[in-house]
């Protein structure tokens, strides 16, 4: 049980992929103009990470070493395409909002990295826990950035007006430069904590 918990907690916090390893920030920056987008994107990454970790772990004794990267890519692409279909069928406006960024989960280094570094060497349950932890850790970062950007940049939270009507929202937060600057400040804070832990 503690191994499951470790696999989960490592992904969620102790080795949070976005901050400790700066992986997969493409979509973290692109889709976080609205909190709702970030929630769906986080769910997508979590589901795909769990699914592909599970499949790769199940097949780990059979996958030939020389084509294993290709096999992992195909499995990941399959799960991503599945999630894309799900959004189109059951949440069409959101699939329009996220557009190609759902497909781009395929190249999200986190997922390929986890199948390669974890699922190939560990049992099915641990791999699913690892995928869940990494996915939720990624989603948490996404949601934090999205809250800052949506509340600060549009004055809304999940589409509801939260800033008083007179307050002028900071448009730059929604634009591309704002995303980079927020991410930079958050990364600074995280690196500061990391340094503090080491010293």
């Amino acid at each position: 049980m503690s191994r499951l918990r470790d696999a989960f907690l490592d992904g969620l916090w102790r080795e949070n992929p976005v901050f400790w390893q700066v992986l997969g920030i493409c979509s973290a920056l692109a889709v976080t103009t609205r909190v709702e987008n970030a929630l769906y994107m986080g769910a997508a990454v979590t589901v795909v990470a769990m699914g592909s970790n599970m499949m790769v772990s199940l097949l780990r004794r059979f996958i030939p070493r020389d084509v294993r990267l290709m096999v992992e890519m195909v499995i990941i692409a399959g799960f991503v395409a599945l999630f894309d279909l799900y959004l189109k069928a059951f949440s069409y406006p959101m699939s329009q909002q996220l557009g190609p960024y759902v497909g781009l989960i395929v190249t999200n280094c986190i997922i390929l990295g986890r199948t390669e570094a974890f699922a190939l060497k560990n049992g099915v349950m641990e791999s699913v826990a690892d995928g869940l932890g990494n996915g939720l850790g990624y989603s948490a970062v996404l949601v934090v950035i999205a809250v800052i950007r949506e509340v600060g940049g549009s004055g809304t939270f999940l589409g509801h007006q939260v800033l008083p009507a007179g307050a002028q929202p900071m448009r730059v937060l929604v634009a591309a430069p704002g995303a980079f600057i927020i991410m930079s400040l958050l990364a600074w804070a995280f690196q500061y904590m990391k340094e503090g832990r080491r010293v």
């Binding site: 700066v22 730059v172 634009a175 591309a176 430069p177 704002g178 995303a179 980079f180 600057i181 991410m183 930079s184 400040l185 990364a187 600074w188 690196q191 500061y192 990391k194 340094e195």
Partner: peptide
């Protein structure tokens, strides 16, 4: 610069400024 700011954070900040310039 502050040690914790070196590397990724400063690169992201510069990218932000570059994006602003490009806009």
């Amino acid at each position: 610069m502050p040690r914790a700011f070196a590397g990724v954070p400063v690169t992201l900040l510069l990218t932000g400024l570059l994006a602003a310039a490009f806009s």
